[in-house]
Amino acid sequence: MTLTNEQLIQIRRHLHQIPELALHETQTHEYLLSVIKGFNQQFLEIRETPELPTALFVRVQGSNPQRTIGYRTDIDALPVEEKTGLPFKSQHPGVMHACGHDIHMTVALGVLNYFAENQPKDNLLFFFQPAEESDYGGKRAYEAGLFSGKWRPDEFYGLHDNPDLPAGAIGCRMGTLFAGTTEVNIDLKGKGGHAAYPQDANDTVVAAAALIMQVQTVISRSIDPIHSGVITLGKIRGGSIRNVIAGHTRIEGTIRGLTQKMIEKIDGRLQDICEGIGRSFNMDVRLGLNQGGYWPVENNPQLTKFFIDYMQKAPDVNFIETAPAMTGEDFGFLLAKFPGTMFWLGVDDDSQLHSATLTPDEAAIKRGVDAIIGFMNARMAK
């Protein structure tokens, strides 16, 4: 029996009450497993892995498979104290599904439940992924070799909820949906000293100021203005008191880019500037870059065209073409390894993602499930 709208909502509300942070989604894992074990098991194979203990893989055996279609949902939450006032609010203090991953999981369960009852033509692989918000669970799974043999998808799909779109609407675009992100850490090491004797010291605060000003030219003068990139240096820490020259200053920030090639170009220019500042001020300037799995979400042209064409023609789908977003998503790493598409599911809310008051419209769940089932059946008919 397929899940009803009321059952899907109850699943979502239970998941909303048990949010857990990256790589600690044990209660979520157990609940997902219990729900999936309640489905018809005739076509299902469930896999748990010691390499990524809170992850869950479910394979649906196709009747006449030509490919394996992957579907990924993220399962972790954020360190946010919930302020929605909902009767089913988070029971874990300081942790909340403030990015809507409870919606993501429920939609995935609805799609999986349908194909457990209605054997698909192609094989399907459902990946319930931990650690999207931090610690890049998709990259961890890939590098652990978990997508191999019959568990390797030929193409991969996934969604993210969007409070700016009407409930149940499907949003997508050709090209990049989400930017890639890179953490930036810069340490400048000079020589401290008395403020009255600057000639005997090597001031890292002055060097940091020069570095920050030069970084502002990277986007304006090194990146094609038709494309988009961002460098934000959001934190600087140096010195201990007003009359002592700082011998160490640390700068922290983030890079955002719409293609991996663009991010790598920004990385290179930033390295050049750090080396130049080091030489100019005769000090040690060390640049640390950490991208992890947060690569740009670059949708595959052929698969995304088919996806958009289907959603535009489906009579019960409200399709909206969307602009790229500068937010990050670690599904980008998997799309760099497997062709696929990421798309939006509208949840119509005044609060934004990562907000303590995010309250998605639950009417989106069943509409999302139905749209994805329709797409997958159309894809398998090709």
Results as ranks from 00 to 15, higher is better:
I245H: 01
A246C: 12
A246S: 11
A246N: 09
A246E: 09
A246W: 01
G247I: 08
G247S: 10
H248S: 15
H248C: 15
T249H: 04
T249W: 02
R250P: 12
I251N: 02
I251M: 07
I251E: 02
E252V: 08
E252M: 14
E252F: 09
G253F: 05
G253I: 03
T254Y: 01
T254N: 09
I255C: 13
R256L: 12
R256A: 10
R256P: 12
L258Y: 13
T259K: 08
T259Y: 04
T259A: 07
K261I: 10
K261D: 10
I263T: 14
E264S: 09
E264K: 06
E264V: 10
E264M: 09
E264A: 05
I266S: 01
I266W: 00
I266V: 08
D267F: 01
D267R: 04
D267H: 05
R269M: 13
L270Y: 04
D272H: 05
D272N: 03
I273P: 02
C274V: 07
E275C: 08
E275Y: 11
G276C: 07
I277W: 01
I277V: 06
I277Y: 00
G278Y: 03
G278P: 03
G278R: 04
R279C: 10
R279N: 10
R279S: 13
S280V: 09
S280D: 11
F281E: 00
F281Y: 00
N282R: 04
N282K: 06
N282A: 03
M283V: 07
M283E: 09
D284K: 05
D284E: 15
D284V: 10
D284W: 04
D284T: 04
